[in-house]
Structure formats: C-alpha cells, structure tokens
Amino acid sequence: MLNPAPSIRIRAFLPIAPYLAQRGVSAIEFCDRLGISPNVFQNADGWLPRAQCFHMANELAKVAADPFAGAHVGFMTELRDLGVWGQSVLAARDVAAACALATVNVPTIHRGSEVRFMTEGKTARIVFRFADRYEFDPRQFIFGSLAVLRKVPLMAGEPSAIRVRLTASRMLGNAALEECLGSNIETGCDHDMIEFDRELLDLPLKTAGTRPSKATEALASAVEAAKMLSERLSDGHALGLETVARTLGMSARSLQRRLKFCGVDFEELLDDTRRSEAIRLICEGVHSMTDIALRVGYSDSAHFTRAFKRWTGVAPSRFRTDRK
C-alpha cells in the first residue's frame, strides 16, 4: 500500500486568523497573498499539501515580521481543537498515556511526519521529525509542532521539568521564543524534541474546564459563518450579518466581535466568497453570466459585472475568454 502524499489537516492552521488579527493583518488579505480562497478553511477536516503548509508558515512569518510566527500559532492552538488527535490526548488517564496516544494518533493530523515517544533512564522524550524530503523551509512548522507537543507533558503541571531541543541554530530574539516554548530551550541539537523528567509520566492530567475558550468560540463562529455564506449565496442581499447571526443562534454584535477576533470583516468575507464562487462557476464553462450572477447573490448581470471588474480588473466575459 502506497503512503499518502505528505499533507496536514486544515484545522491545524485555523489559529492563523486570530494570530494575524492580533498583529493588525487581515486573514482574507493574507489568503489573497498566498493565492488561495479563505473558503478552503471551511472544511477543517480536509487536508492541505505539506509544501503549501510550509509555504504558508513562511509567508506568515514574513507578513507578521515575526521570526517565531509558527511557535506563536502553536502556542495559541488548543489540544481540544485538533480533532481526534487532541481529543484522544485529553482523554488519557495520565501523562504517559497522553504521550503514547500523541504518538500513535499523529497520522490523523499529519501525513509525512513522525512523532516518537521514548524513555531512557530518568528522561522521557517526544521526538518530532519529517519522514521524507520537504520542499520548503520547515522551521516555522517545527516551531508550531513543538509548541503543541509541549502541551502534552505540560498537563502534569510542572513546566520547569520540561525542556525543548531544537535543531535550529541560536537566533536573535530567543526571549520571544521562550513565551511559547518555555525558558528551557537548547538549540543546535541533533533532533527536534520535547524532553522532560520521567517522573512526570505517572501524574494525572491537569486539564482546563470544558467551557470553550474565547479563541475556540471565535474560530468556530468564523468557520460556520463562512460555510453558511458559501451555501446560501443565492439568497443575495437577504444574506446579511443579522440573518447569519440569527441562524447561528447569536446576536449580530456577538458574531461581529468573534469575526473581528479572527481578523475577519463580515462584508469582506461575503465579497470574497462571492468572488471565489463566481470564478469557480465561470471556469466550469457551462453557466450563463445571468445564471452565475443569480447564483452568487446579484439580482442582475449588470451589478455582477461591476463587482467582477472590481475583483479581477476585467469583465466576466473577458475572463472566461482568457481562460480558454
């Protein structure tokens, strides 16, 4: 049986939105920079090619002017938000079982990476590495992965007993990295790993309460709003903030606040969703312009044509001709 192509669950990248928002960068503008639609994040259980993930992580560091962007995103990521992998870890009876489950279930979140759990003497280790070649610099993704993996033994409640080993050389601004990986960091090592005192393995997990965090609620609302917009574009102008918020069971103010936390403006999200869907339908080559206009929420083709020129710089008919 052939191994699946290296890829990573989309849900691992959802915290990018609030990370960018904290730095005054629009998540939608960031997606435009990468040449992808924000709608790709609607299916959190989908997969992105690993090369695209590494490219995304590197661009994130550039646009945020943050050499440790990956670590900050990993630090913001909650285990409960990482699907089957995170849920299995949180359900473990003690730290030893949590570490073992983190290793066994890693294919549910990563393809093309390897996580090993081992003990030697008085030391336990969670070693992270890529199982095959990679196309782009993986450093930011390594930072993020270690920031997440560190949370597994951290549930023992003994941060001073946990150390982080990095293959990366020492860099300026390591103090910023300590915010995400703790103060016990060693660089220039043979492997990227989380190392901790073996005595932590027998300790029960100290997990937070079951109430979702502010980040979790905001991300869930943003994803649901984007999904709803995509599914109901043909509703046109009736598909406003009030309507979406009411359908999601909250006030318009609450939805707006949660979207803002993720660096997303509702009207901008609606506009981008229309653009992406219009381009997709035009590329199919089987729909009339009037039909496409109605499908993406415009009452007539004239309004649609003006919007399409604003999006792409050309009329939809010209766009279709150029694609042939």
Rank of each mutant, 00 (worst) to 15 (best):
L101F: 06
F30I: 03
K122L: 10
P38G: 08
N43K: 12
A64C: 12
D137P: 02
N58V: 10
E120S: 15
R33N: 07
L90Q: 05
A124V: 11
Q52D: 14
G83Q: 06
V106G: 00
F30T: 00
E29W: 06
A97C: 01
L82R: 04
V40C: 08
R125E: 10
I126M: 15
G35Y: 11
L149S: 02
L48F: 12
V63Y: 04
L149Q: 04
L34M: 06
S145F: 00
G83W: 03
G86A: 08
V148T: 11
A124S: 15
K122Y: 04
P159H: 09
S37F: 03
P67R: 04
R133A: 15
M56W: 06
E158H: 13
E59A: 13
A44S: 14
L146A: 06
D132C: 10
F136W: 05
A61C: 09
I109M: 12
A98T: 08
R111A: 10
V127F: 07
V115G: 02
V73H: 06
A161Q: 13
F117M: 10
S113K: 09
F30K: 00
G112L: 06
A57L: 14
E158I: 08
F141D: 09
F136T: 00
Y134H: 14
M155W: 03
R133K: 14
G83A: 08
D45N: 15
L146N: 04
A102R: 01
A57R: 04
F41D: 04
L79S: 03
P49G: 10
A44H: 07
W85V: 04
V40L: 15
M118S: 15
N58P: 03
H72G: 14
